[in-house]
Amino acid sequence: MKQDIILAGVGGQGILSIATVLGEAALSGGLHIKQAEVHGMSQRGGDVQSNLRLSSEPIASDLIPSGQVDMIMSLEPMEALRYVQELSKDGWIVTSSVPFVNINNYPEKEEVYRHLQAMPHTVMLDVEQLAKEAGAPAQAANMVLLGAAVPMLGFSYDSVKDAVAKVFARKGEEIVAKNIAALEAGFRHSSNR
């Protein structure tokens, strides 16, 4: 098993929580992990990404070679496109459809969608709307995204659910339940496609 993932978004959107949950699931599953994060200046409202590598074999590099990424998981549609040259030919893009516009030259939304749909394997979903429908707060939108990615990741839904419960345990039962509801909403969306 090998999954090389780019987690993408804008500083503050919560991509690192996705990494923490997947890291937990991988660790419980006895997999090897490497995850390179971005800290410091670029976090201030700029584009952020994290290279997450999971494998049953030992992993050499902290960075994923270009063209070898199995999945781009993005909390922002244009940010997903920022890394297409990293994606492998049969790789997946799982992305939020909600643009985060904090720059004045953001491209036309429809154009961004068209580019995303032109890629071989794209799942696009309104993670904020789905979180809301599941009774979860907007901060749980990242778990909707993760849920939507689960069918393509090679993890069982239950193993990811357990990891969510473990990671959010210290924040209390209610937060755990809402994050699991968000995860499930994303998972259903993706499974029913």
Binding site: V10, G11, M41, S42, Q43, R44, G45, G46, D47, P65, S66, G67, Q68, M78, E79, L81, R82, V84, Q85, E86, L87, S88, K89, N102, I103, N105, Y106, P107, E111, V112, H115, M119
Partner: peptide, 20 residues
């Protein structure tokens, strides 16, 4: 030999960091 890649998408614009 370099790995095969998709071309860079040219509609993507920079998103520089900014004061909060």
């Amino acid at each position: 030999v370099p790995h095969e890649t998709f071309p860079k998408d040219d509609i993507v614009v920079p998103r520089p960091p900014a004061l909060c």
